[in-house]
Design a protein around this nucleic acid. Structure first.
Length: 573
RNA sequence: GCGCCCAUAGCUCAGCUGGAUAGAGCAUCGGCCUUCUAAGCCGAGGGUCAGAGGUUCGAGUCCUCUUGGGCGCGCCA
């Protein structure tokens, strides 16, 4: 167990460890089930195992011997649990310091290490559909979360721009591309050509060979074929980039599978040299010990498959970046592929294969079914965002009648897109998500807009106070209300949640943390409804300054957290 | 057939890698706006954590089996 990123919890762990003569890493710190028990709790069971005493005895001993110094002000044993109360002013000073320096609460434990993250990675010649939001935003969140921990992140958009599919598209264009409906050619036209070709293949299976032949020509580098493919790719990228900009998503590089074309001969040679290649039904395969199905490396036509390209890409990434982790944010349906991929890398003798991780996620369903382009039940990302912004706009206009039109547009976009994005990072990755307009566009409760609203309330207070900057001379001793402490106590934990999100590749950990933080703030805020003395903007100047500082901390961390998940936070809504 | 994943409140989901009395949101019902944004807050009802064994001080969490659902399994990616 690693030492907590919460500096107060870490100090308690060290103090307890010193009393018992054990390692601080062995001291687990929990929040007590009820706040009146204390600020931090230490279960004595694991400690008892190390000191070979009964748990209540260890708890009693720690309660007696733990120095009431530093942040620790009070220690009580409650049966086998040790409850610790801390110097709230000292803890609050740490919290406020984190506004200027995030590292106070999130140690840069990833400094000097690189993480490669492969995410989004759509196929060209198709629209970005709603289901693409999962890989795109989970990957983007993982990138931001790792960056927050000090890692160097290499975000890779590995476009599906190579393979037989694209041969079929070339064949389809050859047949029908001159028709007026494809002038000018756009993604809709490209997708139509592909669907039309697949449809025709049902009647005439020989077309499959035609498609494969075109891919062979592409892979062999015929200039005219290559130019046409490049045109499809450019058309697709213009469309993708527009949506990525709408989402605020960016990549370190956008390459695509075609990028590894010239890097495959080396991989093939390595496989051959190790004697791993064998022939099966005309294809080149690698048999994996303990696995029923081999990995297909080359088709009977001699063209490559995505497995071959992924092997080459993995090796390239290792050579370029010497990554600490290499993550592949790809849907769960490809689990077998990645299992095989990492196994073959291991068979090639690459010990770094253990650093490669498939980060799978569940399906997006529509009407209970998997969404597919051919199924006709695909919802475009753009359509969802447009609908979301549309629904949000009147609510903002009502709350902010004086807001200029341009700002209203911007705000509606941020909240509408934010609602959709948040709904997709809130559940665990594993879960399938059923597409549901009501849920995706929910503005109340556990939602992105709720978090954004909380931020906007903070901004509003600061505007009214005329002092958005944090006063360094603030007297934190004036923050004496339990509701204020609950907020500060929550903020202290932020680093542990971000670290866990990174370790488990689960951005939803951050999403749920932010909801708790916002709820703590909202409870505190609402106290002011009935009692003017409990408002941030109260009469006492010192209390007011201290509360404004705490509001700044909430605003700062909510904004940082939302950014980690890919949501913007407007100052007014 | 083989493999992987999932099962917690009426619905959608959390549950900090095994710790104290299992928590939120939605929906339902009842409260709170003359001054910090009610997209909010407070309260009520609602649970055999799919089922059965096992591991131990302690299991929603770990192991086995059963049931129910989902997804994969050679020339697409």
């Amino acid at each position: 167990m690693a030492l907590s990123a919460n500096p107060v919890a870490a100090e308690i762990a060290r103090a307890v460890a010193a009393v018992l003569g054990i390692s601080p890493d062995d001291v687990k710190i929990d929040p007590p089930p009820r706040p009146e028990l204390g600020d931090f709790a230490v279960p004595a069971f694991p400690l008892a195992k190390l000191t070979k005493e009964p748990p209540p005895a260890v708890a009693a001993r720690v309660a007696r011997d733990l120095p009431r110094s530093g942040v620790v002000t009070d220690v009580t044993a409650t049966g086998p649990f040790i409850n610790v109360k801390v110097d709230r002013a000292a803890a609050l000073r740490v919290v406020l310091a984190s506004v200027a320096d995030a590292a106070t609460l999130i140690p840069a434990r990833g400094a000097g290490q690189t993480v490669c993250i492969d995410y989004s990675s759509p196929n060209i010649s198709k629209h970005l559909a709603y289901h693409h939001i999962r890989s795109t935003m989970l990957g983007h969140a993982l990138a931001s979360i790792h960056e927050a921990l000090g890692y160097t992140v290499v975000g890779i958009n590995h476009l599906g721009d190579w393979g037989t599919t694209h041969g079929m598209l070339l064949a389809a264009f050859e047949r029908w591309g001159a028709e007026p409906k494809y002038q000018p050619l756009d993604v809709t036209g490209l997708n139509d050509l592909y669907v039309r070709f697949r449809e025709a293949m049902k009647a005439d299976p020989a077309l499959g060979d035609e498609g494969r032949a075109w891919f062979k020509r592409l892979e062999d580098g015929e200039p005219g074929v290559r130019a046409r493919w490049q045109q499809f790719r450019d058309i697709s990228w213009r469309e993708f980039d527009r949506v990525y900009q709408r989402l605020g998503v960016h990549f370190t590089f956008v390459t695509g599978e075609s990028e590894y074309e010239d890097k495959m001969p080396e991989i093939l040679a390595m496989l051959a040299a190790k004697g791993l290649l064998s022939e099966s039904e005309g294809a080149q395969v690698v048999a994996i010990p303990g696995e029923k199905t081999p990995m297909l490396i080359k088709t009977k036509d001699g063209t490559t498959l995505y497995a071959t390209r992924d092997l080459a890409a993995a090796l390239y990434r290792w050579r370029q970046y010497g990554f600490a982790r290499s993550l592949y944010v790809v849907d769960r349906g490809q689990s077998l592929h990645f299992k095989q991929l990492f196994a073959v890398l291991g068979m090639l003798g690459f010990d770094w294969a253990a650093r490669c991780t498939h980060v799978p996620f569940g399906l997006v369903r529509f009407g209970g079914k998997k969404t597919t382009t051919r199924g006709g039940n695909v919802v475009l990302l753009d359509e969802v965002f447009a609908e979301a912004s549309e629904q949000v706009r009147p609510l903002i206009a009502e709350a902010q009648p004086d807001m200029p039109a341009a700002q209203l547009d911007r705000t509606a976009e941020q909240i509408g897109v934010g609602a959709v994005v948040f709904a997709n990072v809130l559940p665990q990755r594993d879960k399938d998500v059923e597409f549901d307009w009501d849920k995706v566009l929910s503005l109340s409760g556990d939602s992105g807009p709720y978090l954004q609203y909380t931020v906007a309330r903070c901004w509003s207070i600061h505007r009214k106070a005329g002092a958005p900057a944090l006063d360094p001379a603030v007297d934190v001793g004036r923050l004496t209300h339990d509701a204020e402490w609950a907020v500060a106590r929550r903020l202290l934990d932020v680093g542990d949640y971000v670290a866990r999100a990174a370790d488990n590749c689960e951005p939803h950990v951050v999403a749920h943390y932010l909801l708790e933080l916002a709820a703590d703030f909202s409870r505190w805020y609402t106290l002011g409804n009935g009692d003017a003395d409990l408002r941030v903007l109260c009469d006492d100047a010192d209390v007011r300054a201290a509360r404004l500082a705490l509001v700044a901390a909430v605003r700062t961390w909510l904004t940082r957290g939302l950014a980690m998940l890919g949501l913007g936070a407007p100052e007014v809504m």
